[in-house]
Design a protein around this nucleic acid. Structure first.
Lengths: 343, 343
DNA sequence: CTGTTAGCGCTTTCAG
DNA sequence: CTGAAAGCGCTAACAG
């Protein structure tokens, strides 16, 4: 039923390889022949069968994106950047969501020899060594977004700087007791790389240090996840430890939003009673009037996508890591009012 | 280099078709033979080549999802439901984002004969007839989520009911001048189906009618898109038409959020000066304290996914449309206070 | 420049 | 139950 390359060849009075040549824009075809083939293609409404082409070329014109949650606005925004780039590069994008660590295992297991995609982008985590090796054996390039890993190409921001900026800002407003909430210190699976949350804490501590304020571990809490619920819970823990915080820096906007909700529930006014700074600058942050550290999420995705495509074409990428800038975005959640009151 | 079915056959001392049989769990294999093959597979670490399998079976074990914006929390949530179902069904999910109408054309054009996926789910719009025909010719089932179209299987909610519920609620609080903001009345491309925004308006009008309030077209505005910016702009238009609205019902939470932002900017207190009701119940709505009409977004995706997979297996789906329930979720954005003040 | 001929690795009749 | 053989539709040497 479907028209194949043979039909076209016959109709054009040429061999199939010639048809193949014009299909693949191979130059070695006389203009006239080429024309005849094109006409036959047009006349028959021929469309090459991708499946056959894939088998023959042994690739699938697809890059996979592995992310933990489709519920994370941050990750989805990175995904957007990836999608845009891939779309205009003519590559398909298939997504793999690994909601549980166990699922992550089986997922990477499959992907690493399944040839379901020619390249892979993982967001916000780094695969275990054994998977990395397997991907390498199968020549499937992997690049990481939002996570720094020396072993493979990664695109990330300067998290230390981000944490520093946020804390510095709070300090500048007169705050002395500043809490910090991160997702988790240790990566869920014990692989290499630098956890963004931990890096941001470094920046936080550095700013404190410069301001001559001793670091107090009782002012930091872990939320586990980047969710409002967890953020609120962590805020509760922090605020009930007996230390009188006047500000909280959260490792993500989602956590910060949770902090804001908790504060609201407890009748704490923001920023008067509690200043809050987030991280990421997801769309919601502007609605909530949240001061935050902006990451170029889309750009992060775009770059990651660009790098995999290079790698997929066999190009050696020297600059194996790519650091993007962060930027403080000041909004209402830590008004200058706080400054006056506290001095 | 990679181990093929031939290697396994040789190692197990059988023919390749036997290996194929055990691979595909075909019953006609003696238990002992089967065992031997399994061992060979294990020993060699054999993994079937998906590309070859795809060509042979002529399918790709993938379903495509076409959506307009990855920026829409609503669509992403539906996507989540789809992803969950597909993952456990062992199917891959590739996403196609058509940010512009022109891109939609080329996308569907390609998809419809590219055999890049075995089934398709489109979110919030309906493809033009010619594409539908082509998909049918190529036996690629298509199902729609969040849009009703008689021509193909669709999963949607009772939008009229939703609009009715929202308006009724406002009416019950004592509001008489209730505005309505929808995205657009006419579908971007002139294809069939019922626009949700228009249906919700029907419910709105019906509630008004029952309350004996004449419908005033000056109280409805179009935002064009489901975005905060557009929502705010529409609110401005509405609020400056000279009618003294006390409440606005928005066709989506994003629009409602925009309304809230605009109100905030203008110093209007919510709900005291202006009550707001949204639609969807995206995660943000609860943060914003927005009263809204909840759609079972994940479930919508799940059902759509379930239906395509049935169709892909060649099953005839009789019940070509599936309507899910909506539910009013009351939060602060239209407090009962309004009732007292206005009476 | 162009046609012939092997594969790509698996599924699937069709005989035994 | 099992093996041989014929595709699936295209790409890519390899000869002309």
């Amino acid at each position: 039923m479907p028209v194949t390359i043979y039909d076209v060849a016959k109709a054009a009075g040429v061999g199939i390889s010639t048809v193949s040549r014009v299909l693949n824009e191979n130059s070695n075809v006389r203009e006239e022949t080429r024309h005849r083939v094109l006409e036959a293609i047009e006349a028959l409404g021929y469309k090459p069968n991708i499946l056959a082409r894939n088998l023959s070329r042994s690739h699938v014109q697809t890059v996979g994106v592995v992310l933990s949650y489709l519920t994370s606005p941050f990750q989805v925004t990175v995904l957007q950047g990836i999608e845009r780039f891939l779309a205009q590069a003519g590559l398909d994008l298939t997504i793999f969501s690994m909601e549980s660590p166990k699922r992550q295992e089986t997922l990477l297991e499959n992907l690493s020899h399944g040839r379901r995609c020619d390249g892979l982008i993982v967001i916000s985590f780094t695969p275990q060594e054994r998977f990395l090796q397997r991907f390498q054996r199968y020549h499937i390039p992997v690049v990481i977004a939002d996570f720094r890993d020396e072993r493979i190409p990664s695109v990330f921001v300067d998290n230390v700087e981000g944490g520093y900026l946020a804390t510095k800002h709070l300090l500048g407003l007169g705050h002395r007791k500043i809490g910090y909430i991160l997702d988790h210190t240790e990566p869920p699976n014990g692989s290499g790389g630098n956890e963004p949350g931990a890096d941001r804490q470094r920046g936080y501590q550095q700013a404190l240090l410069e301001a001559g304020i001793p670091f107090d571990p009782r002012l930091v809490a872990e939320s586990g996840l980047h969710s409002r619920q967890r953020g609120a819970a962590a805020a509760e823990v922090l605020l009930n430890r007996g230390e009188l915080l006047t500000a909280i820096f959260a490792a993500s906007d989602m956590i910060a939003l949770g902090v804001m909700e908790y504060a609201r529930k407890k009748g704490l006014r923001i920023p008067d009673d509690l200043a809050v700074v987030g991280f990421d600058d997801i769309e919601l942050a502007s609605f909530a009037g949240l001061t935050t550290v902006r990451q170029p999420m889309q750009e992060m995705g775009r770059q990651a996508a660009e790098i995999v495509t290079w790698l997929m074409q066999g190009e050696k990428v020297l600059r194996t890591s790519c650091q993007l800038p962060v930027e403080l975005v000041v909004r209402d959640s830590c008004g200058a009012l706080a400054l006056l009151e506290r001095r």
